[in-house]
Design a protein around this nucleic acid. Sequence first.
DNA 1: ACCGAGTCAAGAGCAGTGCTCTCGAATATG
DNA 2: CATATTCGAGAGCACTGCTCTTGACTCGGT
Lengths: 236, 236
Amino acid sequence: MKASQTARERARAELTGEITRTARRHLSTEGAAGLSLRAVARDLGMASSAVYRYFPSKDDLLTALIIDGYNALGRAVEEADADCDPADFTGRWRASCHAVRDWALARPHEYALLFGSPVPDYRAPQDTVGPATRHSAVLARLATEACRAGALRLMGRPDPDPGPLDPSPAVRELFGDSPEEVVARALSVWTGLHGWIGFEVFGQFDGVLEDREGAFARHVAHLGDILGLTGRYGER
Amino acid sequence: MKASQTARERARAELTGEITRTARRHLSTEGAAGLSLRAVARDLGMASSAVYRYFPSKDDLLTALIIDGYNALGRAVEEADADCDPADFTGRWRASCHAVRDWALARPHEYALLFGSPVPDYRAPQDTVGPATRHSAVLARLATEACRAGALRLMGRPDPDPGPLDPSPAVRELFGDSPEEVVARALSVWTGLHGWIGFEVFGQFDGVLEDREGAFARHVAHLGDILGLTGRYGER
DNA sequence: ACCGAGTCAAGAGCAGTGCTCTCGAATATG
DNA sequence: CATATTCGAGAGCACTGCTCTTGACTCGGT
């Protein structure tokens, strides 16, 4: 291809990035529902209609932001996990949880976009499921490795038996040959983690609990118990 | 007071109720962000400006819906708990959890209004905290009574000690003389419960898990373990 | 070098929103 | 009965997402 064509495509990519960047800035201050294509265009000094050349609808812009968000969160958790001693499963668990929380508290509106109430009339396209899995995959890998290493205190199903778990094949694959009980407990701690963080981000703790650092550390320890982690819990 | 005055006030109360009723209907189909004062007015056959005689702003309408929602949820959980043998703490815990979930799944948008991402520019007034506490108070009471009855397997703080918990006086009062560890674990299961339900309501489980009934029963059992409940888990 | 094809930004415009203000009419109060 | 208050309706403002048209620009092939 010629350089001239590349020039045009480069300009397009440049502007696309510029739009998503200022959109994310608006998102972080106004929230997802307050994000306005016109305001973004105004900020960039262009007509609102011009933005539609790059994003056919507001949903498409949101999708781009969501994918970016999932990837950023996934990367943060992956790095936190990689910084740990691979054999220190409790430490990895703790680090991963705090990574998710730190990421969420640093950009609450972005977290709300990923894990809060879905924006109305928005239907997540298939492109989002890959990046969405990313941060959860860290947890799944952690559980699988801990299980394989014998570092998980395995427990039976609750009594009486609630029946078999039926995760999707993709999820089942994430956990390798781990027993079903590990998958079930991983789901519990996964939701338990986001339940806490969501409550923090969405203000549900206001007037309930002020020192959330220490309380979260305890929560992570409780969740680790559910998962069956046997190690001790260190400081952050 | 004269009957005529009562007549006007009655008409006012009547119309206020009518507005909240159709607003709740719109909310349940369109979601909180899609709720439009004009659409509600249209549905009632009145001018949009007339609605402002009854609710000075959309936020005030939302506040009314939120208060109603918290009360309805609280009542549902209270009734579920009251239907159980008071000494069967595990059964009460299970029933309360399922009551929250059933309520949420039956009106996802209303649940999202209460526990999802806060609507932009909306600041919850003080009137909402009372009803908001209601359903959580059931859990607190359950934990307190179980603790007092010796039905709770008490555990120490995680190792090493993350320091004391510092809940607000109102929360601390809900738990009576229960040890701090019970409060900490109640917070864990409280957030863990809503974490799961929120993921269900917000579609986070789509493509991950299809049989959510059984999986939720397991989750409730896991949370009961955190709380230290010692009983066995029966069918619903 | 030029000319048609494709791309682009801009403006006007549509339908919708929350909200305010004003103006008659209905109602309650002295 | 007269006065004061309440009420519904309409017009209007500023904003939103989105569409369509118009004119300018750039690119690729002859």
